[in-house]
């Protein structure tokens, strides 16, 4: 039996390295150094290396006192936990170097878990009673509605071509066979991870930090951990579906790491090269370009499967 139960642990630590890589690429495009891999001698009293900086950030938050606003309801505390559980469970279904819980409808389960994670985040934010969180929540819901169609259609294009709903069975180097689905899914991942053109729900200069405005301490640490796992899950999903060459053993790991590395590199480049959409512009664009791409992808898949 495959050790799929190791997936969440791999996800968390891989996610930290991916997060570091993301920060580094982002910083280099901005002309900065970013978190240093080797810190110079003179600063060794701080640390020798900053590769684990995302982990330190989370540990710092967990060591802090949590302040709960008086206006907050009980869902304010419960939602981050549920969101974390959703992300945690999603790790079992996403193939890590080809290893995942074998289940014939894993794609559908994954859809629900990913959506559930976002929904719990929205519920927690709105339960905080902050106005900025409410505005962020409304924006997040709008984005979710506009984004879910291209996300689902993009992945279903592959499901149609393989006639299955199990992620493991539809893995392959599909960026060549169905590039439209790849682009649609990539854009959907940008929205789901709040990357730059679509970080509308946590736009810092407009609504402080949107849904997470009132979160602090351990709850924010939990949300940050969720975010890191989500980064890994979505990136691993993309790498598995589109950048995967069937292999076993060490070769599989190599291909997998190269795939997620390339995906994060692309995400970081897009994140640093674009400014933020306004919410109306974003929904209009999402319902235009990615939706069209995903419909083309579905048509392409249908043609490949049934006509050719």
């Amino acid at each position: 039996m495959d050790p799929f139960w190791l997936n969440p642990i791999i996800a968390f630590f891989c996610g930290i390295f991916l997060s570091f890589f993301f920060r580094k690429v982002n910083a280099r495009i901005q002309g900065r150094r970013g978190p240093l891999i080797i810190v110079p001698q003179s600063l060794h009293d701080i640390n020798h290396s900053k590769v684990l900086q995302p982990l330190y950030d989370i540990l710092k938050l967990f060591s802090k006192k949590t302040i709960i606003p008086t206006a907050a309801r009980s869902l304010f505390i419960l939602s981050p936990v549920f969101a974390f559980l959703c992300a945690f469970t999603a790790c079992f279904f996403v193939p890590v170097a080809g290893i995942a819980y074998v289940y014939p409808f894993s794609l559908v389960i994954l859809f629900y878990l990913l959506m559930g994670e976002l929904l719990f985040e929205i519920v927690g934010g709105i339960a905080s009673g902050s106005l900025f969180s409410v505005i962020g929540g409304v924006r997040e819901v709008e984005l979710l509605l506009a984004n879910e169609l291209p996300f689902i259609l993009g992945t279903f294009a592959l499901a149609i071509s393989y006639n299955t709903l199990s992620i493991q069975e539809m893995m392959g180097f599909h960026i060549l066979t169905n590039p439209f689905a790849a682009i649609a899914l990539f854009l959907a991942i940008l929205v789901k991870l709040h990357m730059k053109p679509f970080d509308i729900s946590e736009a810092e200069s407009e609504i402080v930090s949107g849904l997470t405005t009132e979160y602090n301490g351990k709850l924010l640490g939990l949300l940050d951990a969720t975010k890191i796992i989500m980064l890994f899950v979505l990136v691993a999903l993309f790498a598995g579906l589109f950048l995967w060459v069937p292999a076993t053993g060490l070769a599989a790991w190599f291909i997998f790491l190269a795939g997620i590395g390339a995906t994060v590199l692309m995400l970081a480049i897009v994140h640093s090269l674009f400014s933020r959409f306004r919410i109306d512009q974003a929904t209009r664009w999402l319902l235009k370009v990615p939706l069209a791409l995903s419909i083309i992808a579905v048509i392409l898949a249908v043609v490949q499967r049934y006509v050719l």
């Binding site: 901005q30 200069s205 640093s272 090269l273 400014s275 933020r276």
Partner: peptide, 16 residues
């Protein structure tokens, strides 16, 4: 203005 519209890269390069 770039930073306020979410384009932090431009702020960094303007500072450079």
């Amino acid at each position: 203005l770039g930073e306020l519209t979410g384009f932090k890269t431009m702020l960094m390069h303007s500072l450079r």
